[in-house]
């Protein structure tokens, strides 16, 4: 809040405008632009839609420049521009055409820029940006699609194993039998099952894209 009360740096009109310095346009040009906007706003107050659209289209780039100067982010700046335009709309009855338009517009723009800065501060204090390394979301349900895709890939890879290895893996890993049970079920010795499982896992790893490809 306090930082917003510092002297700002752009200006629209001479007189009591609080903004001065960085705008290098000649004072006369600025004054004539201010007068144009003042006339357009007076017509808008009377319900002239064309004048109103022209005014808003004219002030939008100016508001954008003001917002970018403070916010340094295009998305945030556009938010502030749109909020400022909505405020101009809501407060257009408070403008007195006998007075310069610049200070009126600049105060509104500053308020909305400060609002965006506050929102940004609040968001930063309680949110973490999501990047590619993060899993999608913390809730397990949101990752079900991924799990299903993984299961499909595993099933496919299993189908491509030699029959003996596939059967050994199915009994020992998927059905979670002990070596003795698996030996009874398959009619193979415990040692043979161990060898088949070891080779099957190694082959599976290669098929799923881990480790080095088979030579």
């Amino acid at each position: 809040m306090k930082s917003s009360d510092r002297k700002p740096r752009l200006t629209l009109a001479a007189g009591e405008s609080p903004f001065h310095g960085a705008d290098v346009r000649p004072a006369r040009e600025r004054a004539s632009r201010d007068l144009d906007w003042s006339i357009l706003m007076a017509r808008s107050q009377a319900g002239d839609r064309l004048a109103y659209r022209r005014l808003l289209e004219d002030v939008a780039p100016y508001l954008r420049a003001l917002a970018l100067e403070r916010l340094h982010d295009r998305g945030d700046a556009e938010d502030a521009v749109q909020d400022a335009l909505l405020t101009v709309h809501a407060l257009r009855h408070t403008y007195d055409p006998a007075r310069p338009f610049g200070p009126w517009l600049v105060t509104i723009a500053r308020r909305r820029i400060i609002d965006v800065l506050r929102r940004r501060g609040r968001a930063r204090s309680r949110e973490t940006a999501l990047d590619a390394e993060h899993e999608t979301f913390a809730a397990p349900g949101t990752n079900l699609g991924e799990a299903a895709a993984d299961a499909g890939a595993l099933r496919e890879a299993l189908e491509r194993l030699p029959a003996g290895q596939r059967r050994a893996l199915r009994l020992l890993k998927l059905e979670e039998m002990s070596l003795r049970e698996a030996a009874l079920a398959s009619g193979k010795s415990v040692a043979a099952l161990k060898v088949l499982t070891h080779r099957g896992l190694k082959r599976l790893r290669q098929l799923l894209g881990e480790g080095s490809p088979p030579k």
Binding site: Q45, G47, L56, A60
Partner: peptide, 19 residues
């Protein structure tokens, strides 16, 4: 988009009574 917002606001520019 901002141009759309401007269109919408201009379309709603009913005459207002100055304070």
């Amino acid at each position: 988009a901002t141009p759309e917002l401007i269109e919408a606001l201009a379309a709603n520019a009913a005459p207002v009574r100055r304070l």
